[in-house]
């Protein structure tokens, strides 16, 4: 059993790290451990779940939190539903009936990637409703998107915890 444990890549690396005292390697190992802890704590920590969902909705509560959480690997995770159209529908029956799913960062739909030129010719604002879910917790955001003066103005309408 001891031999098996000693042959594990992580055990061998830790021994090498202890022997060589490589500060840069230690920093990288601590960074990996720190972000692994973020992932491991996610299922049981509501505050962290909310912070990650805020990142998926591109509306961080602070720039510092955005900078810390963006390198966290969170791709293709959580369940994200969205509705995009020209009506203010709220999260009512129409949202339940007509929503579509997005694999991650559903708020990117407000950017209209590659289609802003075409979309800017259509009059009126667009509304984007987002609901992300994780282990029974929902996080909702709605955006109003206006094309004006050659810009895309994205404004958050409300946030529900």
């Amino acid at each position: 059993m001891k031999e098996v444990l000693a042959s594990l890549p992580v055990v061998r690396a830790l021994r090498a790290l202890d022997k060589r005292r490589d500060r840069r390697a230690l920093a990288l190992a601590l960074l990996i451990t720190g972000y692994a802890m973020v992932s491991l704590l996610t299922p049981g920590w509501r505050g962290l779940q909310r912070a990650l969902m805020e990142a998926h909705h591109m509306r961080p509560s602070s720039l510092a939190r955005w900078v810390v959480l963006q390198p966290a690997p969170k791709m293709y995770g959580f369940a994200h539903r969205a509705w995009l159209g020209q009506a203010r529908i709220g999260f009512g029956p129409r949202f339940e009936r007509e929503h579509f799913w997005v694999n991650h960062y559903p708020a990117r739909r407000a950017r209209f990637d590659g289609a802003r030129g075409r979309e800017s010719t259509v009059a009126g604002p667009r509304y984007l409703y987002l609901r992300s879910s994780y282990r029974g917790v929902d996080f909702e955001t709605s955006y109003e998107v206006r094309f004006a003066d050659g810009t895309v103005r994205i404004r958050s309408m409300d946030v529900k915890p």
Partner: peptide, 29 residues
């Protein structure tokens, strides 16, 4: 140290897929 380099590479791969895995530990997935 190739042992250390390999171990850190494994760590990077592990943390990347751990994040993706944890995000899927929800009934919808």
């Amino acid at each position: 140290d190739p042992t250390l380099a390999r171990g850190l590479a494994h760590g990077v791969v592990g943390v990347l897929f751990l994040g993706a895995l944890v995000g899927k530990l929800t009934p919808e997935h």
